[in-house]
C-alpha cells in the first residue's frame, strides 16, 4: 500500500530554503560557465544510447518507443550531449564548450541533480579542473582533490593478469600479496613529492601515465590534494586522466578525459544534491 504522502525512495524533493539553495547553486555555476565561454544545452530525457555511458545495464530505466526500439531514461548526460552536439547539431553550431544543468535517473527511482560541462575536441583537463574548482570555491567549498589516471589500472590489469574488478573494489590485500616492489610503491603513493621516485621504479608504460598525473597535479595551484594512481572509476567513458573532489563520504564533483566518436574531449560534473545537503546541514 502506498500512502498519499509517499514519494519513491531515492527521489529528490526540495522546497523553500533548499529549493532556493538549488537555484542559487545553479545560477552561480551557470554565470561562471557562461563567462568562460560555455553555452547551455538541455538534452532529451529519453535516449537510445545510454548503454554507452553506464557500466551496469540494470541501472537503466528502460522503456520503448513507438517502433518498439529500446530507450532509457537519461542516466548520464555526457555521451548523449556530445553525440547531439556533434551529430544532430553538427550543421547548426561549431561551438565546442557546453554545459547542462539537469538531473539523471537510475533504476529503480534514484535521482541526481547535476551541473555538467563538456569541452569537445579538447584534452585540457587542467581547464576543466580549474572550472570545477572555481565553481566550488564560489560555493564556499574546498573538498579534497584526488587525481588519478584510469589507464594505470587498465594497463596493470592487462600486464599482470589481474581482473579490473580487483582495482574497482581496491583489493589491496591481493595486490600487495603479489610482492612486486614497484606495485607496492604505487599502492603507497599519495603525495606529489613521492612521484618522481616511484616513476623511476615502474615499467615504462606506467611511467608515462604517472607523468600525466604529475603534470596535472603540478599545474594546479589547489594544494588540498592527493594522487591515487590505482583508483578505478566505474564509469565507462573516462579512459585516462581523471579527478574527483571528495569530502567525508561524498563525491562533490568528478571529471576526466574521454574519447567519443574518435574525438578526445574532457568534461566534469558537479553533484548539486550533495552541495544542498551540506548547506542545509550547516544551517
Amino acid at each position: 500500500m502506498i500512502f498519499e504522502h509517499e514519494i519513491p525512495e531515492g527521489s529528490r524533493l526540495y522546497f523553500a530554503s533548499s529549493a532556493k539553495e538549488k537555484r542559487n547553486i545553479e545560477q552561480k555555476a551557470s554565470q561562471l560557465l557562461e563567462k568562460s565561454g560555455f553555452l547551455e544545452i538541455v538534452t532529451p530525457l529519453f535516449s537510445y544510447q545510454q548503454h554507452q555511458s553506464i557500466g551496469d545495464d540494470k541501472e537503466l530505466i528502460s522503456v520503448n518507443d513507438a517502433q518498439n526500439h529500446n530507450m532509457s531514461i537519461r542516466a548520464d548526460t555526457t555521451i548523449d550531449a556530445v553525440r547531439i552536439i556533434t551529430k544532430r547539431l553538427g550543421r547548426n553550431t561549431t561551438h565546442r564548450r557546453w554545459f547542462y544543468i539537469q538531473p539523471v535517473y537510475r533504476y529503480p527511482s534514484f535521482e541526481q541533480n547535476q551541473i555538467g560541462a563538456e569541452m569537445i575536441a579538447s584534452d585540457d583537463l587542467k581547464e576543466a579542473l580549474d572550472m570545477t574548482l572555481l565553481i566550488l570555491e564560489k560555493l564556499d567549498q574546498q573538498p579534497l582533490l584526488q587525481i588519478s589516471n584510469i589507464k594505470i589500472p587498465q594497463l596493470l590489469s592487462k600486464s599482470l593478469q589481474i581482473p579490473l574488478d580487483d582495482f574497482k573494489h581496491m583489493r589491496i590485500d591481493k595486490l600487495l600479496s603479489l610482492n612486486i616492489e614497484w606495485l607496492t610503491e604505487l599502492i603507497y603513493l599519495q603525495d606529489l613529492e613521492q612521484i618522481d621516485r616511484v616513476m623511476q621504479l615502474v615499467p615504462k608504460e606506467i611511467r608515462a601515465e604517472l607523468a600525466k598525473i604529475k603534470e596535472l597535479a603540478m599545474a594546479s595551484s589547489y594544494r588540498h590534494s592527493i594522487i591515487a594512481p590505482l583508483y578505478y572509476t566505474q564509469m565507462l567513458y573516462y579512459d585516462e586522466l581523471y579527478f574527483r573532489l571528495v569530502k567525508d563520504n561524498s563525491t562533490y564533483a568528478q571529471g576526466g578525459r574521454y574519447i567519443n566518436e574518435g574525438v578526445v574531449s574532457v568534461g566534469f560534473a558537479i553533484y548539486t544534491d550533495i552541495l544542498i545537503e551540506e548547506k542545509e546541514d550547516n544551517t
Partner: peptide, 17 residues
C-alpha cells in the same frame, strides 16, 4: 576499509595494515 577513508588516511591505514 571505507574507500574515501582509505584515500584520505592512506598512510595511517597502510601502517596499521
Amino acid at each position: 576499509a571505507n574507500k574515501n577513508s582509505y584515500f584520505f588516511k592512506k598512510s595511517e591505514i597502510l601502517d596499521l595494515y
